[in-house]
Design a protein around this nucleic acid. Structure first.
Lengths: 116, 116
DNA sequence: AGCCGATATGTTTATTAAAACATAGCCAAA
DNA sequence: TTTGGCTATGTTTTAATAAACATATCGGCT
């Protein structure tokens, strides 16, 4: 997973539903990435030392707020089930990092021009 | 004070000390604005229904983290004293809104190109 | 010297958020 | 039809945060 620069991360969010004004931030983007790489909410949450309960609630929240679900859940079956990040979910991840890049660039430029 | 658009605010922060990686967000920017317009922490906090204690702590925190203090306090004297936003503080406010503008623009452009 | 309205700070209480624990339901595959 | 590992959800406990209250201090002015 992509590392976070302590020095240059800026903290912002990305729309998942522009109409309603809902966003997700780095924490949820990382949860999505972990779910994607592990194939389950349980493992993805463990990866980032998050409780399964909280992770599950975040997924519920994201799915209900977003135009399209970002994570699809599979109950029972092979391996007990799991969860996969949808195409919409992957787009959110991508958008987040694209925006981050632009943000950091803009922030650096502006900060440079203003001396305290 | 500048209104917040529910639909388009994006939530981010501005550096007050790039070396150490410290930031302030909209909440603190607004506190600064309120202190500036009222001339005191007490009144500024009341303006936004924040307790004086919390506001005072925020100011302390900002001042200690920032390269230069953002708020100067006046003890006692005429009117009992007060607080004024320094030049550095005003620059932070300005920087915040400049960055916001850029952010919204970049975010809109990117979001437009990605359909869910 | 006393007033006034602000800063400065300690203490306690209430509210909210997170963690921890427990347990039921699901279903392909063996 | 039992197993395994996951989803789903309720309950309780703990920790973190915020609010509320109290009080001391400061210093120009009158």
């Amino acid at each position: 997973m992509r590392p976070v620069s302590k020095k240059y991360s800026i903290g912002f969010r990305v729309w998942i539903n522009e109409e309603e004004g809902h966003f997700i931030g780095l924490g949820r983007v990382r949860l999505l990435e972990n779910i994607k790489s592990t194939g389950s909410i349980t493992k993805g949450a463990k990866e980032m030392k998050m409780s399964y309960r909280q992770a599950w609630q975040m997924v519920e929240d994201m799915n209900s707020r977003s135009d399209k679900p970002l994570v699809e859940k599979v109950l029972g079956g092979k391996g007990g089930g799991g969860a996969i990040v949808t195409e919409a979910g992957e787009k959110v991840i991508k958008l987040y990092y694209q925006l981050e890049e632009k943000m950091i660039k803009a922030s650096k430029e502006l900060s440079k021009s203003i001396k305290f």
